[in-house]
């Protein structure tokens, strides 16, 4: 059982993002109109942006902490994105266009200190192979990431995000770029992923159907706050 807690306060152009939430395992669905601050929230949790005040904690471990009285000054705790151990699937997938599918999937594994150890490296590579098989992208290994379809890109991006065994997975509208036909196939894969891997996940979506299908917990955001 994992516990995720966060309170993110960040002044944006037209409103102040102020979201306080926590959940035990499963998928937290964050819904809301465009411009409600959902992606900014994920960026703050991932460490790509620093909140003005608040905290982010995973299983009690603080990833970020800046008390309200410290707002405008340095954070007390601010682990860099690379040290947070999170997986992030970007809305546009952000697959490295200069790499193959396999190089994309293995990118995070190669950053791990264990990768330098010969035995551990084999285990990591075997696991990556298992993930690629599970998501049906093993046959695309040698293909350029720019030369595959939208549905395949989505699966590669998800594989890349989970192959490092993240403590929390952040999914920013992962299905929005897919056509209806592809979506149906990807939904069933995602259901399988959810049941098999059981990684605590924050999923941003516009869709009521996706919220119903995948959400164990749900929040709705409007102009930076939960409504």
């Amino acid at each position: 059982m994992s516990r995720i807690d966060f309170h993110v306060i960040k002044k944006l152009d037209i409103f102040t993002l102020d979201v306080h939430c926590g959940f035990d395992s499963g998928v937290l669905v964050v819904r809301g109109e465009s411009g409600a601050g959902k992606t900014t929230l994920l960026h703050c949790i991932a460490g790509l942006l620093a909140p003005d005040a608040g905290f982010v904690s995973i299983d009690g471990e603080r990833m970020f902490l800046r008390d309200a009285e410290n707002a405008g000054r340095g954070a007390q705790i601010d682990k860099p994105a690379r040290a947070r151990g999170l997986g992030y699937l970007f809305q546009s997938y952000a697959l490295f266009p200069n790499m193959t599918v396999e190089q994309n999937v293995l990118y995070g594994i190669r950053n791990k200190p264990e990768y330098k150890d010969h035995t551990r490296r084999k285990e990591l590579l075997d696991y990556a192979g298992y993930i690629m098989e599970t998501f049906g992208i093993a046959g695309l290994r040698r293909k350029r990431s720019t030369a595959i379809s939208g549905g395949e890109k989505q699966r590669v991006a998800l594989s890349r995000a989970i192959v490092t065994k993240p403590r929390l997975l952040l999914l920013d509208e992962p299905f929005s770029a897919l056509d209806e036909e592809t979506k149906a196939a990807v939904y069933s894969e995602f259901r399988l992923f959810k049941e098999r891997f059981r990684i605590p996940t924050i999923l941003i979506t516009h869709s009521d159907a996706e919220s119903e299908m995948f959400g164990d917990h749900r929040i709705h955001m409007k102009a930076g706050v939960i409504v």
Partner: peptide, 27 residues
């Protein structure tokens, strides 16, 4: 170069030097 690739590399645990070597510079 779209900064999203560097952000993706950050979330995947990459050091600044590795991001430059494998993402920023090649792109």
């Amino acid at each position: 170069t779209d900064p999203i690739y560097e952000q993706a590399a950050m979330t995947l645990g990459s050091s600044e030097w590795r991001i430059f070597r494998t993402v920023t510079f090649p792109l």
